[in-house]
Design a protein around this nucleic acid. Structure first.
Lengths: 169, 169
DNA sequence: ATCAAATTGGCAGTATACTGTCAATCAAGA
DNA sequence: TCTTGATTGACAGTATACTGCCAATTTGAT
């Protein structure tokens, strides 16, 4: 091997978790969009629809906790879902600040119809690995995300963030 | 368990690779930015600096292949690195279309200085796992990214994309 | 009752990422 | 040579993600 201009080689990037996570995220989104093209839904929009169906009447702040994305980002996501007619925003009676989110009939239908494509996409992401390796990777990744939960700006606060709603559906 | 409004639960999101990859990417960027705050470099900008140091005189299109990001995105990344004084853009003598990229002295210094912080960040991302599990996860992730390389818009084309340059530094 | 603190949604600004388009330029073939 | 096709960098437009700020509102402490 000829000498490099310094001791820093591309391995300082390629073999590191940060690079691999970014690359895998790129690939995952690419596969999702390809499989779900006909439904015109992004991964984030899909996650939002699932969460709203599971928690009808949730507000934007709590939704951000349930799917772990930024409230600032969520505003535009909600706008787009509303523009597509998949969700409705209704003012709350008790708190004039909040707007409650509900799936429309069209949104529920869209969500039901997209599921097979989402499943195909999820399967394709891990398809190159052997079955045992897929299981191992998913398990380790699940652990790691869970153990690092508090690190990101918007930690996941699943169902327990919704206790005050006093209902599960 | 009380019944849900449908069969679609949040597990349709939480346990799937697409969600876990997105979440882990969020966490990884968050850790990187936190550790490297004083250097004012994002993960992408860091990768670009490393690549330019390893391939002085590379052009934007080839750089995008070497670090696997989109050429459209890369334009603004290069602009920012240039504005910070970390890199220089010089027109090519042979091809009037291309602009060759070089690290400035300041850029090289910045890159050298940030390395310990980057190492700390990379270590923190996997820190919650046991050593054996870290190794397993990295190996599987590396395999998966490699095997899915052609899927994304900008497949990684490491060194072999640069053969025509006729040099390694 | 009132004032301080927290919450909610919205906005501005920055930084990836992608699609698609375009003009300038270069390369290859008829 | 001339024309066709490919390449390069730039740009417009959309969609996450983040920081930080703000007004309206609600809640809690006094």
């Amino acid at each position: 091997m000829p000498s490099k201009p310094s001791d820093i080689t591309m391995d300082a990037v390629y073999t590191k978790p940060g690079y691999l996570f970014r690359r895998m995220q790129q690939i995952a989104v690419s596969i999702f969009v390809e499989e779900c093209r006909e439904f015109d839904l992004t991964p984030v929009q899909y996650a939002a629809l699932v969460a709203i169906q599971n928690h009808p009447g949730i507000d934007a702040t709590r939704l951000s906790a349930v799917i772990a994305f930024d409230r600032s980002t969520l505003g535009s996501v909600i706008e787009r879902l509303e523009a597509k007619g998949h969700i409705e925003r209704k003012p709350s009676a008790e708190d004039k600040r909040v707007k409650l989110l509900y799936l429309t009939k069209a949104g529920a239908t869209q969500l039901r119809n997209i599921l097979p494509s989402v499943d195909r996409a999820q399967a394709r992401m891990l398809a190159p690995l052997k079955a045992a390796d897929r299981k191992t990777l998913l398990a380790l990744l699940g652990q790691l995300v869970d153990l690092n939960n508090e690190v990101s700006r918007v930690p996941l606060r699943a169902e327990d963030a919704l206790e005050h709603l006093g209902r599960t559906g």
